Computed example of a mutant assay.
Amino acid sequence: MAIADMTDAWDERVAAVWAAAAGSMVDDEVIAAIDVLAAERGTDDARAEFERAGARDSAGRPGEAVPLYAHALELGLDDEHRPQAVIQMASSIRNLGDAGRALALLDDEYRDHPDAPFRDEVSAFLALALASAGEERRAASVALLALAPHLRRYTRSMTAYARELAD
């Protein structure tokens, strides 16, 4: 079996665990299932660490999740998973009471990866972190700039108004 086939099979098994957990609170059983799969790849695998972090995060254990997200990001995630890890880690950090640190992570992702997947999601969490940090006008600007391209009309004027808010 080729390496790509093994990776695809691993991804499918991870997806199956998450699908089975959908709609319910993630518990120790889900964490254990993800940990078993992650162990196949080891602690030096960014995706494995990302999945371990996500399981703990989903179980309401942000303090356990944050170091795992940080390790996954340090190891290097692909463009699909990096923004998800940043969003999830920043959200956990904000929930732990450090809006400034969450804001810094999201600001970096927003600035450094303008064409990355999950751009709207990064914008939404950035707006939330900005509001938590007391920067409501900039939060509204970020949210409106993310929304503007999805409007059927008034995109140009909404973009201009959103930029005015930030100035």
Rank of each mutant, 00 (worst) to 15 (best):
V66W: 01
V66T: 07
V66Y: 01
P67A: 10
P67D: 07
P67Q: 05
L68K: 08
L68F: 03
L68Y: 08
Y69W: 10
Y69V: 10
A70Y: 04
A70P: 02
H71N: 13
H71T: 15
H71Q: 15
H71P: 00
A72R: 01
A72Q: 12
A72K: 07
A72E: 06
A72G: 06
L73E: 14
L73W: 08
L75E: 03
L77I: 13
L77M: 14
D78I: 03
D78L: 12
D78G: 06
D78W: 03
D78N: 14
D79F: 01
D79K: 01
D79L: 02
E80I: 15
E80T: 04
H81S: 06
H81R: 15
H81K: 14
R82F: 06
R82H: 13
P83M: 02
P83F: 01
P83W: 02
Q84A: 15
Q84L: 15
A85G: 05
A85L: 05
A85Y: 06
A85N: 09
I87V: 08
Q88D: 12
Q88A: 10
Q88Y: 01
M89R: 15
A90I: 06
A90E: 08
A90L: 11
S91M: 11
S91P: 00
S92W: 02
S92Q: 07
S92P: 00
I93M: 06
I93G: 00
I93Y: 01
R94V: 08
R94G: 05
R94Y: 00
R94P: 00
R94H: 07
N95Q: 14
N95I: 08
L96Y: 03
L96K: 09
L96P: 00
L96D: 07
G97A: 12
G97W: 08
D98S: 14
D98E: 14
A99V: 13
A99C: 09
G100I: 12
G100L: 13
G100H: 09
L103E: 11
L103K: 06
L103D: 02
A104D: 13
A104I: 09
L105H: 13
L105Y: 12
L106P: 03
L106K: 03
L106Q: 01
D107W: 04
D107C: 02
D108K: 08
D108N: 10
D108M: 02
E109P: 06
E109A: 10
Y110W: 10
Y110Q: 03
R111D: 10
R111C: 02
D112Q: 06
H113G: 00
P114H: 05
P114F: 03
D115P: 03
D115E: 15
A116M: 12
A116V: 14
A116N: 08
A116T: 13
F118L: 15
F118P: 00
F118Q: 15
F118A: 14
R119P: 01
R119I: 04
R119S: 00
R119Y: 02
R119W: 02
R119V: 03
D120C: 12
D120W: 09
D120E: 13
D120F: 09
E121T: 14
E121W: 08
V122M: 02
S123T: 03
S123H: 06
S123C: 01
A124S: 12
A124W: 08
A124C: 05
F125L: 11
F125Q: 14
F125R: 13
A127N: 11
A127T: 13
A127V: 15
L128K: 11
L128T: 14
L128P: 00
